[in-house]
Amino acid sequence: MHATATHASEHVHPTWQTYTKVALILFALTFLEVGAYEVVHRHAPVGLAIALEPIVVEVLLLLSALKFALVAMFYMHLKSDGTLLSSIFAFTLLLAAVMISALMIIFGYLYYVAPTVNPLK
C-alpha cells in the first residue's frame, strides 16, 4: 500500500526550461493584454482599433484565461499532479464563473432591461 502511495505522489515536475518558456509566454500574453488596451484607448493605429474595439472584452478575458491556465497547469503542477486536484479546482472555478455571470445577468436585467419593459414606468 505504502509503495503505491509513494509512487503516486512522485509526479514528474517540469524542468526549468519549461518554466522559463511558460514565463516568456506569460509576459508575451501580458504584453498583448496591455497592447490591446492601449490600442483601443488611444485609438491608434486607427484600423486596428476599429477592428478590435467590439471584441476587446472577449480578447482580454481570453488572454487572461490563457495566463490563468498556464500558471495553474505548469507552475501549480496540475498537469502532472493527477485529476483529483484538477477536478477540485476546475469545479470551483466553474461555480465561481457561474456565480459572477448570474449576478451580472440578474442585475443587468434589473438595472438596464427592467426599466424599459416595466409598464408602470
Partner: peptide, 14 residues
C-alpha cells in the same frame, strides 16, 4: 447552488 433566488421572488426579478 442554482436555486438561491427562490428566497427572493418577492423582490421582483423579472
Amino acid at each position: 447552488f442554482g436555486v438561491w433566488a427562490h428566497h427572493m421572488f418577492a423582490t421582483g426579478m423579472g
